[in-house]
Amino acid sequence: TAILEKHDRSQFEVFAYSYGPVEDSPERQRFTQAVDHFIDIHELSDAEAADRIAADGIDILIDRKGYTFGHRLGIFARRPAPVQVNYLAFGGTMGVDFIDYAIVDAFVVPPEEQENYTERLVYLPDCYQPNSYRPKADKMPARSDCGLPEEAVVFCCFNQTYKLTPRIFDCWMRILRRVPDAVLWLLHPDAATADNLRHEAAIRGVDADRLIFAPKVLQAAHIARHALVDIFLDTDVVNALTTASDALSMGCPVITCPGHSFVSRGAGSILRAMELPELIADDFHAYEDLAVMLGTQPDSRAALRKKIAEKMRTAPLFDTARYSAHLDRALLEMWRRYAAGQPAEPFSVPPLETSPRS
């Protein structure tokens, strides 16, 4: 929403088409106020929605669902806009001929991967994912409020449990064996999954009580409790994305080990834009050793938290105005090429020399 609010209105008129559930939340209210036109199309068929979009004279139509649940790609298949873009929600190619561009960065999708995309790749200079400060609870929780030991080293992963794999769980258990005063804080899954994780921990020689499960709370309270964490451990096949940004915004270091796919490289992109490359491990041996080093060296953790606090003010990751300016440049270049009769081609957006940080 912050990006929508910052689009250059001398260059853009912003339409939003909603086909999701109708709700009256503060987030939706802010979103509707951030755009020039908000149109609810959830009762329209794909053909009717495409006709409405075409009638509105949309130049660039951006898909925010990909192949995720509830998508309406049938609208895009009807080509209601001359330029159509895959952006943010789907980490990979759509594999169709009616999406012209995908917005990425050079870390999540290296240029040599263009041959695997039907879209032409548009490279933003920092991170493909927009990041802004999300509201946190006014009152910060104590460890005792969350069932955490006061003196323990707290590793956490607040990713959804579908992102857990045997490989990453094996790695986490080795870390706990090497840092004997540590616990692992996870989002509370269903009861059967929690029991399975405890059982698997015990099989790997780790006391099941060292796995602690965080109950579901309101978003602001969830973000605030990252302050109680010493180290966030990322998953492997599908990375933390907004979850990684939330952790960093509360001063919590995030350790990741990038894979070869878009969704396994997102946290690395975030850390690069936060200017914290030392938290990107080359392999899982390095990932494990880095976690153990931070888990056993309080001074190193303190120095890293200090660095994160500094980077919150100076690194590109949370510079919403900079990101929005880069995105505007990308969209304008897409339109310039179309208007000139040129085919869609890959291109990179040059970074701003000075940042309009806000």
Rank of each mutant, 00 (worst) to 15 (best):
D8S: 09
D8M: 03
V14D: 01
Y19F: 14
P21H: 08
P26D: 12
D36K: 11
H37C: 11
D40L: 05
H42V: 10
A47Y: 08
A49R: 05
I53P: 08
G57H: 06
G57F: 10
D59N: 15
I60R: 02
D63E: 01
T68S: 11
T68I: 10
F69D: 13
G70K: 09
R72L: 05
L73Y: 00
R79K: 15
P80I: 12
G91F: 09
G92P: 08
V96Q: 09
D100I: 07
A102P: 02
D105I: 05
D105M: 06
A106Q: 13
P110E: 05
T118D: 01
R120G: 00
L121M: 06
P125R: 01
Q129D: 10
N131Q: 13
S132M: 03
K136S: 12
M140T: 02
P141G: 00
G147N: 00
P149R: 03
A152Q: 04
F155E: 07
F155Y: 15
I168D: 08
F169T: 05
C171H: 07
I175W: 10
L176F: 06
R178D: 15
P180I: 13
A182K: 01
L184G: 03
W185Y: 15
P189T: 12
E200N: 14
E200C: 07
R204M: 05
R204Q: 13
R204C: 07
D209S: 13
R210D: 01
F213H: 04
A220T: 04
R225K: 14
H226D: 02
L228T: 01
V229Q: 02
L233N: 09
L233M: 07
L233A: 01
T235M: 10
T235K: 11
V238G: 08
V238K: 14
T243K: 11
S245D: 13
L248M: 07
G251T: 05
C252M: 08
I255W: 00
H260Y: 06
S261L: 09
F262M: 00
S264C: 04
S264R: 03
A267M: 03
A267W: 01
A273Q: 04
E275L: 06
E278R: 11
E278Q: 15
Y287I: 05
P298Q: 07
A302G: 13
R305N: 12
K306S: 14
A309K: 12
F318R: 04
D319C: 11
D319S: 10
Y323M: 04
D328C: 14
E333W: 07
G341P: 06
A344K: 07
P350E: 12
E353N: 07
P356H: 05
R357L: 00
